[in-house]
Design a protein around this nucleic acid. Structure first.
Lengths: 233, 233
DNA sequence: GTAAATTTGTGTTATAAAACATTACCCCCC
DNA sequence: GGGGGGTAATGTTTTATAACACAAATTTAC
């Protein structure tokens, strides 16, 4: 549950990076066209081939961007945490969505029609540059991901995935337990392997004392070695 | 060899998409800071980890954007044809280059310092939207490529690569011969496989009467079937 | 114009990872 | 407290593709 006061703080505070780029007048326009929605665990936010209409801002929870490929295989492309924006790429490209977005866990999203955002961009260069920056970083990440997924072996890909999770969502108070609890299947979809192989490789990592696993809780206990495995395939 | 008059036509005509977004004054600034350079076959334009300084515009020739990964493996990420722009992503992301660019064949590049471009963006939203659009399309392409390269089998990946070449560079006058002549190694690097397997699979495509091969000349003679192979892995 | 280097072609072997097949586990819910 | 759906774990088999090895052809260099 999220309190209204909390939300107001988020909109006025954590949205900073985008929000700060706006004039008083533009802020008013956004506020007038803004609403928020709750999504349940695993609920789909938008799906491949749909027409993009909105800018989404993740306020609470965790969201995955994924694409289904050949057979039943799914690739998780990107992960979002509060406060990050998504859903705008397809709109700017004048394309249908090429991927889907779903909530990993109960989440709250801020929603603004892209039309409104686009109108503001036409008058506000800082907002334009915000999106240029975001898109540029995402594109670099996507290009790098291609190498990771195509050239590394299973161990390297899983190690990489665990480090990405740590970077994205951080650790619990103990400074070692990943602050995300995902299924073995999602872990596999993140690192381009079958669920069986994700489980198996996770077990070998435990045997090698790189991590500790308790159900979906993963503790990283030898990050340097994990980083080495990720780097050299 | 490229004539000066040809270049002037290109700058004033084919650069259209970006050029048209500019005011008279901005055009003057670009023209004053613009120069062009010739690159020989296989010459590197910029390399991974270097600091991005320039916007490149391919005026003549063909350019590949590639990234070297584990061992000696290389992945070709994108292909450019006249008149397309590249080199700006890393600058906008405030990162070093994550990939390298090289000429496939003798090429002519227009070069403008990104600082100049960035200054103009701050005042010209149409230019900002041009880059937003380009980046958005590239990001969609990169996400789709991840599925192609990770989930399709060799035949599917090579078929896909051939179709991409056709889309990018088109056909010779006969309407079937690819207008690019690349080595088997480059073809392999485009489709994430070893050179041996690119050669082998090309041979099986010839045997199946999907293509005709004469050295580096590739004639597509059954595109629908190639498209089917590409689609279903 | 001949040697050297590179690219292309093909067969053989090795291996990483998928596919398949069970079995065990763990909540949740009647 | 005993089914039952989903998730996790693990062993076995199969297969796609890399790795290797070498021969032939073509291009480049001197």
């Amino acid at each position: 549950m999220i309190k209204k006061s909390t939300l107001e703080r988020i909109i006025g505070d954590d949205l900073a990076e985008l929000w700060n780029a706006l004039t008083q007048d533009e802020k008013r326009v956004i506020a007038e066209n803004f609403h928020y929605e709750r999504y349940k665990k695993n609920q789909i936010i938008y799906a491949e081939n749909e027409s993009p209409e909105n800018l989404y801002c993740l306020l609470e929870g965790k969201v995955k961007l994924y694409k289904s490929g050949i057979g039943d295989r799914v690739q998780i492309l990107r992960l979002y945490r509060p406060v990050q924006y998504f859903g705008y790429r397809a709109y700017f490209a004048r394309e249908a969505y090429v991927s889907s977005a779903a909530a990993f866990e109960p989440s709250v999203l801020g929603i603004v029609p892209m039309k409104i955002v686009e109108d503001i961009i036409h008058k506000n260069n800082d907002l334009a540059l915000f999106f240029i920056h975001e898109l540029s970083r995402n594109l670099g990440g996507s290009d790098t991901k291609i190498i990771n997924l195509t050239q590394k072996h299973i161990r390297g890909r899983l190690a990489e995935a665990l480090l990405i999770l740590a970077d994205n969502y951080g650790y619990e108070a103990d400074g070692a337990t990943l602050k995300i609890y995902m299924s073995r299947e999602d872990l596999a979809n993140l690192s381009n392997m079958t669920t069986s192989n994700a489980i198996r490789t996770l077990t070998t990592f435990v045997n090698e004392k790189l991590i500790l696993v308790d159900g979906r809780k993963i503790r990283i206990i030898n990050e340097p070695q994990l980083r080495k495995i990720s780097k050299f395939g």
